[in-house]
Structure formats: structure tokens, C-alpha cells
């Protein structure tokens, strides 16, 4: 096991950033920490990379307790959420610099970063500050990998990156995992969860669940309907007055609906909406996604909190 987190808690004044967080990440595993902004992801990363001390709880990273910060700092790679390279240095100079502070050279570990580096190599003499968002992240990944770390921490690496570059980025992570590296990656994009081996859903500092993406969607456990309409606002308001309505959430252009009954009656719902004067609606049964599961779990979580 490369990362073992045992009931870590951390507060900033009255704000509880992390509450009793526990999970493990294995070698060769791509583990996703999924949750919205402000959920506590960055705080957890900073504790695991020894940049912050937890208020309570323990963690072991790459075989060392987090109190042994010098040993951990030698064996992990960390890519913070903010772009943290030197914008006035070129691509190549940044890479060389990070290799040098870890006491290695670019040549020694070139094999590991080659697949990524070839994509930015045409711009090797360009200043890092002048790169596009996707290129910047690829360079930052190279810099975090250059000393061949045992554990890799990537804090929201795909935020602000175009869809094509995002896809490429995840393909690289997939290859790194095959090399046996343990990778903990955080993201606010729920659709990226399915690319991970396992995920932990985090919300308001609490881990809602930890499982494989497939299992998480299975545990959703009730029929789900997508409603397509041109009048999202009115339809949402009207469904809230429907007797069997359980949840209704906007998902892009659609609305996702669950019913209070075990076996919902879609025909009846359609009739109900027509009765309210909505004629352009389209109702289809769909498979739940991670995001549906997240909304469901977050809802239950806040209900527990309010009780």
C-alpha cells in the first residue's frame, strides 16, 4: 500500500476542511478524489505531501509516516492545483531545474516522461508562461515525474484544460499506473471518475464513499429518468409539486428525476406535465452516472447533518 490515510481531520478556525478522512491507495492504482471546489481536496493533498499538519489522524505515504517529511519529500511527485512552474524559464529549463533539485538528470529518467514530453518538445525553447493551458499541465506533469516518484499527487490537473488535452492527459496517467506508480488525482469533473480504478467522493470535508466507479453507480439503486425540455425552470418547479417526486436535478440540458416509489410510472408523470401545459418534454430511462451518485450521497449526507 503506497498511501494509507487513517481518520485525518483538519479545521481552519470554524471551517472543518476535513472530517475523519480514511482511505488507501495501492501501488499501480489510479485513485480519484472526486468532489466540488471547496470540498477539502487541496487540504488533503497538502497534508499528504507534508505541507500541512493534520489536527488529528495519521497517514503513511510511500512507506513513511507523514511526520517524516524529509523522506516523503524525496519519494513523491506533487503537482499543485495552481500552475507552479517558472513562467520566465523555458520548457527545457524548467524540466532541467526540477531534475537538478531532485539530484537527477533529464536523461536518466527520460524514458518515463518520453510519451508526454514528445508532445511539448516542439516548444522546448518557449517560455513556460507562453504555453497553452494543456501544454502547461503536461509540462508540470513532466516536472513532477522527472525524479521517478513512487507516489504521484495531482491536484486538479485538468482544471481549465480543453477536452482534447484532458483526454490525452488521462491516457498518460493510465500508462504511468501500468508502471506501478500509485497515483492520487483530484478533480471536480465527475465524468473523469470513470477513468479511475477507484474513487473517493468527497463533499464538505467528508468522504461520502470509496469504491470502483462501476460499483458506485450500481449502489445508486433506483430507476433514473432524464427529462428533456426547453423550459428547465418551469418544469423543475412543476415536478416539485408532483406527489411522487423524490429528487429533480438539472444536468446540462436535461433534468434527472427519481421517484419515491420502487416502480415509477413514467406515463403518469408525462401526463402530469402535459396537464401543466408542457408539451415538448421527452422522458427516457437512463443509467445513473457518478454525478448522480454524488448528488444522491451528498443529499443524504446533508440530511444527516440537518437532523
Amino acid at each position: 500500500m503506497e498511501i494509507r490515510i487513517e481518520s485525518i481531520s483538519k479545521s481552519f478556525g470554524d471551517v472543518r476542511a476535513l472530517v475523519d478522512v480514511t482511505f488507501d491507495v495501492n501501488a499501480g492504482e489510479l485513485f480519484g478524489l472526486i468532489g466540488p471546489d471547496g470540498g477539502g481536496k487541496t487540504t488533503l493533498f497538502r497534508i499528504l505531501t507534508t505541507l500541512m499538519l493534520p489536527d488529528s489522524g495519521n497517514a503513511v505515504v510511500a512507506g513513511y509516516p507523514i511526520s517524516d517529511y524529509q523522506a516523503i519529500r524525496r519519494s513523491v511527485g506533487y503537482m499543485p492545483g495552481r500552475f507552479s512552474l517558472y513562467p520566465d524559464l523555458t520548457v527545457e529549463e524548467n524540466l532541467k531545474f526540477f531534475a537538478s533539485i531532485f539530484g537527477t538528470t533529464v536523461e536518466k529518467n527520460y524514458e518515463l516522461i518520453r510519451d508526454i514530453y514528445v508532445q511539448i518538445e516542439p516548444f522546448r525553447d518557449r517560455r513556460a508562461g507562453a504555453l497553452s493551458g494543456g501544454m502547461k499541465q503536461k509540462l508540470a506533469l513532466c516536472c513532477a515525474l522527472i525524479h521517478r516518484p513512487k507516489v504521484l499527487f495531482l491536484d486538479e490537473p485538468t482544471t481549465g484544460v480543453d477536452p482534447v488535452s484532458r483526454k490525452e492527459f488521462w491516457e498518460m496517467l493510465d500508462r504511468l499506473r501500468q508502471d506501478g506508480m500509485a497515483i492520487l488525482v483530484s478533480t471536480a469533473y465527475m465524468d473523469e471518475a470513470s477513468l479511475c480504478d477507484r474513487v473517493a467522493l468527497i463533499h464538505q470535508g467528508k468522504i461520502l464513499t470509496t469504491d470502483t466507479p462501476a460499483n458506485i453507480t450500481v449502489t445508486f439503486g433506483r430507476p433514473l429518468y432524464a427529462i428533456r425540455t426547453s423550459n428547465v425552470y418551469e418544469v423543475t418547479r412543476d415536478i416539485e409539486s408532483y406527489a411522487y417526486a423524490r429528487t429533480i436535478y438539472p444536468f446540462g440540458e436535461h433534468l434527472h428525476y427519481t421517484d419515491k416509489r420502487e416502480k415509477p410510472d413514467p406515463i403518469e408523470l408525462e401526463d402530469f406535465l402535459r396537464g401543466k401545459g408542457h408539451h415538448d418534454i421527452e422522458l427516457t430511462a437512463i443509467e445513473p452516472t457518478i454525478e448522480d451518485a454524488f448528488m444522491e450521497l451528498a443529499e443524504t449526507h446533508s440530511q444527516i447533518l440537518t437532523q
Binding site: 505531501t49 505541507l51 495552481r82 531532485f102
Partner: peptide, 13 residues
């Protein structure tokens, strides 16, 4: 300010 200190800290330096 640039956040590079964060990376420098998580290094053997």
C-alpha cells in the same frame, strides 16, 4: 506568491 515555493518545499531541497 507564484506558488513555486509549494513545489520547492515538496522536494529534497
Amino acid at each position: 506568491e507564484m506558488g513555486t515555493m509549494e513545489v520547492l518545499l515538496v522536494s529534497p531541497l
